[in-house]
């Protein structure tokens, strides 16, 4: 772990009188595969939306060492795969068309990368300025050199390459509406990969996928993590979190745990509390 990619401090989000996210703080380190667990309605998606500038919030979020004033340039460097995407079922776009949309604003991506390169490396900024938005001229001594690490997924620069990474090149000319939910999620991962993201946010990506699609997804996620992409991933699947995550955050509006997965899974009391809380939410939602 060489530096902080994302820092969330005292994040609070409310809808009227309802507090959806209550004063949570966590960070994501370079190369992390952070698994966020929490029952339905625990604020995972809301937190992601705040990070991506889609949701007003209270508190402080910094990304690659910069504050929200630079997010317009930095968010295009983040790959985001929402839980599910609604679209017109007859939408006349092929898989290739959808993946190509990922680099629709190449200028923004270049601008974001230029911003990070300004001081050799964003990681250096974070470690020296602790998330401040002022420029830091000190040379990079800790994190990897951004000049050599401008793109974390080398080779994923064309729609076909991105589709190959997610094992869907054979479906490139099919319409998006013809694909299964699991295949669609992989298309959206490819759409993120085409811009070689520095960080990916995956919001319960396998919720509506079958077992085969889930297995494929996890193998892709593992491959991406090994290639150096920082991944923040929310899931209900504790087995998958235990198997693939490097660190874990557990939340139910408030943050109950944030740290190494070994620590999380060895804390039986915490696990029991999480399981009971998730079960209660499930039963409440299903009228039991």
């Amino acid at each position: 772990m060489n530096g902080t990619v994302l820092q969330v401090q005292n994040l609070t989000i409310s809808y009227g009188n309802h507090i959806a996210v209550d004063d949570i703080s966590f960070d994501v380190q370079d190369g992390d595969l952070l698994g966020i667990v929490g029952p339905n309605g625990s604020g995972k998606t809301t937190t992601f939306r705040a990070i991506l500038g889609l949701q007003p919030y209270g508190g402080k979020i910094s990304m690659f060492g910069y504050g929200p004033d630079k997010f317009k340039s930095l968010i295009p460097l983040v790959g985001y795969v929402p839980q599910k995407i609604i679209f017109e079922p007859n939408f006349p776009a092929t898989v290739h068309d959808i993946v190509s949309m990922g680099i629709i604003h190449e200028k923004k991506i270049t601008k974001g990368m230029d911003l990070l390169k300004q001081n050799n490396c964003y990681l250096n900024r974070v470690q020296n300025t602790n998330g401040a938005t002022t420029l830091d001229d000190t040379p990079n001594t800790v994190g990897p050199d951004c000049k050599n690490r401008t793109r974390s997924c080398t080779g994923c620069t064309t729609p076909d390459d991105a589709l190959k990474t997610v094992d869907l090149e054979h479906l490139r000319d099919r319409r998006i509406g013809e694909l299964s939910a699991g295949e669609q999620q992989r298309v959206f991962i490819a759409q993120s990969l085409i811009k070689n993201p520095l960080m990916m946010i995956l919001d319960e990506p396998v919720t509506s996928a079958d077992v085969e699609s889930q297995t494929k997804f996890y193998s892709i996620m593992k491959k991406l993590s090994e290639s150096g992409i920082t991944i923040v991933w929310s899931s209900h699947d504790l087995d998958a979190i235990e198997r693939y995550a490097s660190r874990v955050a557990c939340m139910n509006r408030k943050l109950f745990f944030h740290g190494k997965k070994e620590q999380f899974f060895s804390d039986e009391k915490l696990l029991k509390t999480y399981t009971e809380s998730a079960m209660q939410v499930h039963m409440h939602r299903h009228g039991h």
């Binding site: 991506l52 500038g53 889609l54 317009k72 968010i75 295009p76 983040v78 985001y80 929402p82 995407i85 949309m101 990922g102 629709i104 604003h105 923004k108 991506i109 959206f188 759409q191």
Partner: peptide, 8 residues
């Protein structure tokens, strides 16, 4: 929302 995240 995806379009917003892409920078549009």
């Amino acid at each position: 929302e995806q379009a917003k995240v892409a920078g549009l």
